[in-house]
């Protein structure tokens, strides 16, 4: 069990070592970038998990169900977009947050919207995109992506059977 848990990072580190022997320079660069990312992660991840723990304990389930649950409707969609867009950080940072929202009774389609928003419609990134690639590029992408995210969320949610969703939700409790 413990061995299995560490297998993936072990293989990834092994890959860096192999890269180092194949190409010294690239290997060194990979180590530098990885160390940099680890430091960055050390700054963001622990407080996120503390905040999530607090959220888990203090926010009542009823509140979450009201705003993001099965019958939250269009308000739930908007809140999911706002939550995802206001965030900062890489996509994999969104998953633990989604997990806590799910534990508290958020609807799966809203979770998918949250993940979609986190990946593409982040406000600071959008400003930066306008600056680099122009307003028509950034705006077109934003509009198409917002529509697309909602459609994708509805489709995936529709493709899941009740049993599969239940399994995901019960699995989340253990993560």
């Amino acid at each position: 069990m413990v061995l299995k848990k560490y297998l993936f990072p072990f293989i990834a580190m092994l890959a860096i070592a192999v890269l180092y022997f194949v190409n010294n320079e690239l290997g060194k660069k990979a180590v530098e970038i990885t160390t940099g990312s680890l430091l960055e992660m050390a700054m963001i991840i622990p407080p996120i998990f503390i905040l999530l723990g607090l959220l888990d304990v203090w926010v009542p389930k009823e509140t979450m169900i009201k705003y993001l649950g099965e019958h939250s409707g269009i308000l739930g969609v908007v809140i999911s977009f706002v939550l995802g867009s206001a965030a900062a950080g890489p996509l994999y940072g969104a998953f633990p947050i989604a997990a806590v929202l799910m534990k508290k009774g958020a609807n799966f389609s809203n979770i998918l919207i949250f993940i979609g928003a986190w990946s593409t419609t982040k406000i600071p990134m959008f400003m930066f995109e306008i600056e680099s690639l122009g307003a028509s590029f950034a705006l077109t992408r934003l509009v198409v992506d917002i529509v697309g995210i909602v459609i994708i969320a509805k489709i995936i949610n529709g493709l899941m059977t009740k049993k599969q969703l239940e399994k995901i939700y019960s699995n989340i409790e253990d993560v």
């Binding site: 990834a12 690239l26 990979a30 990312s37 680890l38 992660m41 998990f49 723990g53 998953f95």
Partner: peptide, 24 residues
Amino acid sequence: AWKSFNSIFTKFLGVICLVGIMLA
């Protein structure tokens, strides 16, 4: 907080190493 951190930490570690290789 500790429980959820502990269950995902090793995967984060692996992904960050892979990203390091990719970016290099």
